[in-house]
């Protein structure tokens, strides 16, 4: 590691600059810069949350209050919009559908991605680099390119408008992503562990399930978070592959605009509810998420 810090000349230069500043002054400067950091971060978070707050605000108002006057917080707090969604099957089934295909996708992806990622992290084989690159291009391929063939493919195999169709379609980008992240996590597990286990008489499946998977469990948690995230937010494919029985919530939300105008309150409440599952998932993996974002490679 050749970081220029060892470069003594530079070190001396900074020494002479800083030694003129007394220690008390330096501490003061330090705490002031800490305060400035907090202020900047606070500003960013306020700006980040503002559009979300506005959505929450609208979801707790009646339509007449939304349209009537500008109110920064609900004057007559009402939960009618939420109650409306939870008592109407055509609304809440949208959430059930979305969650069903997302969970199916997570299970399918994990089952095939775990062994594949193990192969990539432990072995060289013919075409491994090209195969890996091809996987990544699927991550980059815009779903719009595949819309029509997808519709016809799933229609011809009789899977149109089922949850499994959407789950399989989302494998297109979720499997490559899962392999990419898992490969990073697996490569950080020393190879000696595998070898010791084989010497101890473990068979491959037994070693994989009993020893290896527990060792990368935080990585698996992070991958599940990413799988959830990308399957939950994607709607172009989900919309194309469903019509009534498996329609995702994002599509049902477009129903709020009727001839008599847009039902803003319900739209806002439905939007708020699409954020809730994400918050739950991110809460569970909050301690490992930073490593996951670097694809397990730090």
């Amino acid at each position: 590691m050749s970081y220029q810090l060892e470069n003594t000349q530079q070190g001396e230069k900074y020494n002479t600059i800083f030694s003129k500043v007394p220690a008390a002054e330096r501490r003061k400067r330090h705490s002031r810069s800490r305060l400035r950091k907090r202020l900047l971060l606070g500003t960013y978070i306020v700006l980040l949350v503002l559009p979300l707050y506005w959505l929450l605000n609208m979801s707790l108002q009646t339509n007449s209050e939304i349209l009537g006057s500008m109110t920064l917080w609900p004057q007559n707090l009402t939960f009618d919009n939420y109650i409306g969604i939870f008592t109407n099957p055509s609304w809440y089934m949208g959430y059930v559908n979305s969650i069903m295909y997302v969970v199916m996708n997570m299970i399918i992806t994990m089952l095939v991605a775990l062994p594949a990622a193990y192969a990539f992290s432990r072995y060289k084989f013919i075409g491994d680099k090209h195969l890996f690159f091809w996987l990544l291009t699927n991550l980059m391929a815009p779903p719009a390119v595949f819309l029509l063939p997808y519709f016809q493919l799933y229609y011809s195999v009789g899977l149109f408008d089922t949850h499994i169709a959407v789950a399989l379609a989302h494998c297109l980008f979720n499997i490559p992503l899962a392999i990419w992240i898992l490969e990073g996590f697996m490569s950080s597990v020393p190879k000696e562990i595998d070898e010791t286990a084989y010497i101890d008489g473990y068979s491959f499946p037994k070693f994989f399930i009993k020893i290896f998977i527990p060792m990368i469990s935080s990585g698996i948690g992070v991958v599940l978070f990413f799988l959830f995230m990308f399957s939950w937010v994607e709607l172009l494919l989900a919309r194309t592959l469903t019509s009534t029985d498996a329609q995702p919530i994002g599509m049902i939300m477009t129903r709020t605009s009727t001839a008599s105008g847009i039902d803003w309150g319900t739209l806002a409440a439905a939007g708020m509810l699409t954020i809730v599952p994400g918050i739950l998932v991110v809460y569970f993996v909050r301690n490992h998420i930073a490593k996951g974002f670097a694809l397990g490679r730090t």
């Binding site: 949350v49 959505l55 939950w232 937010v233 939007g271 954020i275 599952p277 918050i279 909050r286």
Partner: peptide, 18 residues
């Protein structure tokens, strides 16, 4: 961390609506 990840977890068309 949780606050900052929030926008990433919202369905894309809901982001448009927001």
């Amino acid at each position: 961390l949780i606050l900052i990840t929030l926008p990433l977890l919202i369905p894309w068309n809901v982001v448009g609506s927001i």
